[in-house]
Nucleic acid binder design. Structure first.
Lengths: 222, 222
DNA sequence: ATCATTCTGTGTATAAATTACACAGAAAAA
DNA sequence: TTTTTCTGTGTAATTTATACACAGAATGAT
């Protein structure tokens, strides 16, 4: 029986079906010093030794891709369960110079200060990079990052997405700065507040942020 | 060396890394009798014998996913190269009752009348279904179809997408009916024409469609 | 050939959404 | 206490989306 004649999902009954390594790669975005950052890891082995990469790793037996993402990021940051969203699947045969690997990419939103990052396994360094100081990444990760950022921006325009990018109490100015940082454009303060508030997903608390002029009130998610 | 310690894409140097069957599944949409149709195949073997499914099949060695889609659909319809777009990746461990299969889904837009469909391999029947007469699909293909349709609708609202759904000459009414069929809502004729024409991607030809009252002019893509 | 029918093709008025914009008040810093 | 800097708010102008009706062209019926 040739593989060519297989019907959908018929590989279950086939002996000569092709199997392939699947990896997850993750654009982990954080908001730090009023700037959108991306978590990169420095690879310590060939190929692409000393290149910076998106964190990722192979899917293991019995895992869903989502579980792989959680495992990989938990190893790296200690984050237990990290909300993430699928971006795309990459299958060019030569994207890994040695072995065939199909990767599924994700993005995730975290608060950097909550999670100290620790180099591990084949990683010699870990760093939060600003989007304007990015090094050339290894493999095809430049493209993965680009696509991940576009996906995040697209989602931002539709719903309100901020994962764990902010603390659970935040000012509207902080939220606006987050938006500006992701979209890479400046927004009008009054229009932004109007738009966000009429989404009806935030509510003001009776606290104010201290240490900042104007005494802005803190909001939380409903 | 345990798999757990693998860095990103490090499976190249690993011996015990897990490999998995990857399949593509395709929502093939066509526009027929003024209605959006989806191409389904009837499976003739267990599991899910006699269930209708999205056409699909396993990725083969040396193929990109895109090439797999083209091969699978070429087998089924004779279409040489079919434009398609990635929708999502599905990795639940039990989505195939017998073997682990990770599927990547796509949608494609074709003109049914151009391509007679022929049952083959593990397929006992092939049929274009209207969206309002869908059978319960096998595996998790109900979900895949739902997601594919949502993706198509989302794309339609942003750009003008019509792949090969229409002939190369078409009237604006035909295009509008296509839109209405995909979005499952009725549109105002004047507003639709205004919107489409100011996209500046169509141009009128000097031909008119015959056999239809009113003598509508034929347009083509710029 | 004429008439009735049905579809095409077009513009304007209204409503809704987006954008532009300025000043008074609160907290911090000097 | 004064100055500085940030917060918080409303309205007018613009743009975009929506609602809506009638004359002309081709077909089909007689």
């Amino acid at each position: 029986m040739s593989v060519e004649k297989l019907g959908p999902l018929d590989t279950a009954v086939s002996v000569d079906s092709y199997e392939c390594t699947i990896a997850v790669e993750c654009c982990v975005f954080g908001f730090q010093e009023n700037e959108l950052k991306i978590l990169l890891v420095k690879r310590s082995i060939e190929p692409f030794k000393n290149y910076w990469l998106l964190p990722g790793g192979a899917m293991m037996e019995g895992e869903t891709l989502s579980q792989s993402v959680n495992r990989v990021l938990n190893d790296l940051t200690g984050i237990e369960k990290i909300t993430h969203e699928q971006v795309a699947c990459y299958s060019e045969v030569d994207r890994h110079p040695i072995k065939r690997v199909v990767s599924v990419s994700f993005y995730a939103l975290v608060k950097p200060e909550n999670y100290p990052v620790i180099p591990k396994s084949y990683i010699s360094d870990v760093k939060w990079y600003g989007l304007d100081e990015l090094p050339k990444l290894g493999f095809d990760h430049d493209r993965l990052l680009h696509d991940g950022l576009e996906k995040l921006r697209g989602n931002l325009r539709e719903h309100l997405v901020f994962g764990e990018l902010l603390s659970d109490r935040f000012t509207l100015t902080e939220l606006q700065e987050l938006y500006e940082s992701i979209l890479n454009e400046t927004l009008d303060r009054r229009n932004f507040r109007k738009k966000i508030l009429q989404m009806n997903i935030l509510e003001p608390t009776d606290e104010k942020k201290t240490g900042v002029k104007g005494g802005p009130v803190l909001y939380k998610r409903k």
